[in-house]
Simulated scan of single mutants.
Amino acid sequence: MKLFIWMSRFSVAVGSLSGLATGAMMVVILTDVIGRAFFAAPLPLATEISVMLLIVKVFLGMAGAQATDSNFQVTVLTDLLSPRWKYLQRIVSLSVALVGIGMIAWLATAYAIEATEMGETSFGVHPWPIWPERIILAAGLCLLTLQILSDLVGSAIWGQERLKSGLPDHSGSL
Rank of each mutant, 00 (worst) to 15 (best):
Met1His: 09
Lys2Gln: 14
Phe4Glu: 06
Phe4Ile: 05
Ile5Ser: 11
Ile5Trp: 13
Met7Gly: 05
Met7Ala: 08
Ser8His: 03
Ser8Leu: 07
Arg9His: 12
Arg9Asn: 15
Arg9Ser: 06
Phe10Glu: 13
Ser11Trp: 01
Ser11Ile: 07
Val12Met: 09
Val12Leu: 11
Ala13Pro: 13
Val14His: 01
Gly15Tyr: 00
Ser16Asp: 11
Ser18Asp: 12
Gly19Arg: 10
Gly19Val: 14
Gly19Gln: 09
Ala21Gln: 06
Thr22Gly: 13
Gly23Ala: 14
Met25Gly: 13
Met25Asp: 07
Met26Tyr: 07
Val27Trp: 05
Val27His: 00
Leu30Phe: 13
Val33Asn: 01
Val33Cys: 03
Ile34Gly: 06
Ala40Phe: 15
Pro44Ser: 07
Leu45Phe: 03
Ala46Pro: 15
Ala46Leu: 11
Thr47Pro: 00
Thr47Gln: 00
Ile49Leu: 13
Ser50Cys: 10
Val51Asn: 03
Leu53Glu: 03
Leu54Met: 11
Ile55His: 00
Val56Ile: 14
Lys57Ile: 11
Lys57Leu: 15
Gly61His: 04
Met62Ser: 09
Ala63Pro: 01
Gly64Leu: 03
Ala65Gln: 05
Ala67Ile: 10
Asp69Met: 08
Ser70Met: 09
Phe72His: 08
Gln73Pro: 02
Gln73Gly: 06
Val74Gln: 03
Leu77His: 05
Asp79Pro: 03
Leu80Thr: 12
Leu80Trp: 01
Leu80Cys: 04
Leu81Gly: 03
Pro83Thr: 12
Lys86Asp: 08
Lys86Ile: 11
Tyr87Cys: 02
Gln89Asn: 13
Arg90Glu: 15
Arg90Pro: 06
Ser93Asn: 10
Ser93Tyr: 05
Ser93Asp: 14
Ser93Ala: 14
Ser93Pro: 08
Ala97His: 05
Leu98Ile: 01
Val99Gln: 14
Val99Leu: 15
Val99Phe: 15
Ile101Asn: 07
Ile101Ala: 07
Gly102Asp: 12
Gly102Gln: 07
Ile104Leu: 15
Ala105Ser: 11
Thr109Met: 15
Ala110Phe: 07
Tyr111Met: 14
Ala112Tyr: 01
Ala112Lys: 01
Thr116His: 04
Glu117His: 06
Met118Ser: 14
Gly119Met: 08
Glu120His: 09
Thr121Ala: 06
Thr121Leu: 03
Ser122Ala: 10
Phe123Gln: 14
Gly124Trp: 02
Gly124Pro: 15
His126Arg: 04
Trp128Leu: 04
Trp128Phe: 14
Trp128Arg: 02
Trp128Lys: 02
Pro129Ile: 11
Trp131Pro: 13
Trp131Leu: 12
Pro132Trp: 03
Glu133Trp: 00
Arg134Gln: 13
Ile135Leu: 15
Ile135Phe: 14
Ile135Glu: 15
Ile136Arg: 11
Ala138Pro: 06
Gly140Ala: 03
Gly140Arg: 04
Leu141Cys: 08
Leu141Asp: 10
Cys142Asn: 09
Leu143Ala: 03
Leu146Phe: 08
Leu146Gln: 02
Gln147Val: 07
Leu149Thr: 00
Ser150Trp: 00
Ser150Cys: 06
Leu152Ser: 11
Leu152Thr: 02
Val153Glu: 02
Val153Ser: 00
Ser155Lys: 06
Ile157His: 02
Gln160Lys: 04
Glu161Ala: 05
Arg162Pro: 03
Arg162Thr: 10
Arg162Phe: 12
Ser165His: 12
Gly166Met: 04
Asp169Asn: 09
Asp169Ile: 00
His170Asn: 14
Ser171Cys: 10
Ser171Gln: 07
Ser171Glu: 04
Ser173Lys: 08
